Amino acid sequence: MQIFVKTATGKTITLEVEPSDTIENVKAKIQDKEGIPPDQQRLAFAGKQLEDGRTLSDYNIQKESTLHLALR
């Protein structure tokens, strides 16, 4: 499925993911596309910060959802 990640600079990244993917996997995909190390990424959805060990389906993130990326 496709999801979107909006960066602090307003850029939107499109990612191909599975509901079973962990947040860690998603951060690795962002690193592949943007070169941002996962340990510098903070992802949020619906106002909640997402934890590495959880999956997209844990957070009820569905196709075409938009996550927000902040850098630490």
Results as ranks from 00 to 15, higher is better:
Gln62Gly: 05
Ala28Val: 10
Ser65His: 11
Ser57Trp: 13
Glu16Cys: 04
Thr9Gln: 08
Leu67Tyr: 01
Phe4Gln: 11
Gln62Val: 10
Ser20Leu: 12
Gln62Tyr: 14
Thr55Ser: 11
Leu43Ile: 11
Arg42Thr: 06
Pro37Tyr: 13
Glu34Pro: 01
Ile23His: 02
Gln2Gly: 06
Leu15Asn: 00
Met1Ser: 03
Leu43Gly: 00
Thr22Met: 07
Thr12Phe: 15
Thr14Asn: 09
Ile23Asn: 01
Thr22Ile: 15
Lys33Arg: 15
Gly47Ser: 08
Glu51His: 06
Gly47Arg: 06
Thr22Lys: 08
Asp21Phe: 13
Gly10Thr: 04
Val5Met: 03
Lys63Trp: 10
Thr22Glu: 04
Glu64Tyr: 11
Val17Tyr: 07
Ala70Glu: 15
Asp52Gln: 07
Thr14His: 15
Asn60Trp: 10
Leu56Gln: 00
Thr7Ile: 10
Asp52Leu: 06
Thr22Pro: 05
Leu67Thr: 02
Glu64His: 14
Lys48Arg: 10
Ile61Trp: 01
Asn25Glu: 09
Lys48Cys: 04
Lys33Pro: 02
Lys63Asp: 11
Gln2Asn: 08
Ile3Leu: 11
Pro37Cys: 04
Ile61Ser: 01
Thr7Gln: 09
Ile23Glu: 01
Glu16Ala: 13
Gly35Gln: 05
Glu64Ser: 08
Lys29His: 13
Gln62Asp: 11
Pro38Thr: 15
Thr7Glu: 06
Glu34Phe: 14
Asn25Tyr: 11
Glu51Met: 05
Phe4His: 06
Ile61Ala: 02
Ala8Thr: 08
Gly47Gln: 08
Leu50Asn: 00
Leu56Cys: 03
Ala70Val: 11
Asp39Lys: 11
Glu24Ser: 11
Gly35Tyr: 04
Gln40Phe: 06
Pro37Asn: 09
Gly47Asn: 07
Phe45Ser: 04
Gln49Ser: 08
Glu34Cys: 03
Leu15Ile: 05
Thr7Lys: 09
Lys29Val: 05
Asp32Arg: 08
Ser65Trp: 07
Glu34Asp: 07
Lys63Ile: 06
Pro37Ser: 11
Thr22Phe: 09
Gln49Asp: 15
Asp58Ile: 05
Gln2Ser: 05
His68Pro: 01
Gln62Asn: 13
Ile23Trp: 01
Gln62Ile: 10
Asn60Thr: 07
Glu51Gln: 05
Glu51Trp: 04
Gly35Ile: 03
Glu16Lys: 15
Glu24Cys: 04
Asp32Gly: 12
Ile36Gly: 02
Thr55Lys: 09
Ala46Cys: 04
Asn60Tyr: 09
Val5Tyr: 02
Phe45Glu: 02
Asn60His: 10
Thr9Phe: 07
Ala8Gly: 08
Gly10Trp: 05
Lys11Phe: 12
Lys27Val: 02
Glu16His: 15
Ile3Glu: 00
Ile61Met: 03
Leu67Ala: 01
Glu24Leu: 13
Asn25Arg: 12
Glu16Leu: 13
Ala46Gly: 08
Phe4Lys: 15
Ile13Pro: 00
Lys29Met: 07
Thr12His: 08
Leu71Asn: 09
His68Gly: 12
Ile3Cys: 02
Ile23Met: 05
Ser57Arg: 13
Arg54Val: 12
Leu69Asn: 01
Ile30Ala: 01
Ile3His: 00
Asp32Ser: 12
Leu43Arg: 00
Arg54Ile: 12
Val17Pro: 01
Lys6Leu: 13
Leu71Thr: 11
Glu16Tyr: 11
Gln62Arg: 06
Ser57Lys: 13
Leu71Gly: 10
Gln31Phe: 12
Asn25Trp: 08
Ile30Asn: 01
Lys48Ala: 10
His68Tyr: 10
His68Ser: 13
Leu56Lys: 00
Arg72Asp: 15
Glu24Lys: 09
Gly35Ser: 12
Asn60Gln: 11
Glu16Asp: 14
Lys29Thr: 03
Arg42Gln: 06
His68Asn: 15
Asn60Glu: 03
His68Ala: 05
Ile36Trp: 09
Ala44Trp: 12
Lys63Pro: 10
Asp39Arg: 09
Leu50Tyr: 01
Val5Ala: 04
Gly53His: 14
His68Glu: 12
Pro38Gly: 06
Thr66Ala: 05
Ser20Ala: 12
Thr9Ile: 06
Val26Met: 04
Gln41Asp: 01
Thr9Asn: 15
Ala44Glu: 09
Leu69Tyr: 02
Leu43Met: 04
Thr7Phe: 14
Asp58Tyr: 13
Gly10Glu: 11
Met1Thr: 04
Gln2Thr: 14
Ile36Cys: 03
Thr55Glu: 05
Gly35Met: 09
Ala70Cys: 04
Lys29Pro: 00
Lys33Gly: 05
Ala8His: 11
Glu51Gly: 04
Leu69Thr: 02
Arg72Gly: 12
Glu18Tyr: 12
Asp58Cys: 03
Arg54Trp: 12
Ile13Thr: 05
Phe4Arg: 05
Leu56Asn: 01
Lys6Gly: 05
Arg54Glu: 06
Gln49Glu: 13
Ala8Phe: 07
Thr7Ser: 11
Pro19Ala: 09
Lys11Tyr: 11
Arg54Ser: 13
Gly10Tyr: 05
Pro37Trp: 09
Leu15Gln: 01
Gln49Pro: 12
Ala44Leu: 09
Asp58Ala: 13
Asp52Tyr: 13
Gln40Ser: 13
Ser20Glu: 14
Gly10Arg: 02
Lys48Gly: 07
Gln41Thr: 06
Glu34Trp: 05
Asn60Cys: 04
Arg42Glu: 13
Val26Asp: 00
Leu69His: 02
Thr66Asn: 09
Lys6Ile: 15
Gln62Glu: 12
Gly35Phe: 11
Pro37Met: 09
Gln2Ile: 09
Glu64Phe: 09
Leu43Ser: 00
Ile23Ser: 02
Ser57Gly: 12
Asp58His: 07
Phe4Val: 06
Thr66Gly: 02
Thr14Gly: 11
Pro19Glu: 11
Thr55Leu: 08
Gln41Ile: 11
Val26Gln: 00
Glu24Gln: 10
Thr9Cys: 04
Glu34Asn: 08
Asp52Asn: 09
Val26Pro: 00
Asn25Asp: 08
Lys48Asn: 13
Ile23Gly: 02
Thr12Pro: 05
Ala8Pro: 09
Ser65Thr: 09
Lys48Glu: 06
Asp21Trp: 13
Val5Gly: 01
Ala8Ser: 12
Glu51Arg: 07
Leu67Trp: 02
Gly53Tyr: 10
His68Cys: 04
Thr9Met: 12
Ala8Val: 07
Glu34Gly: 05
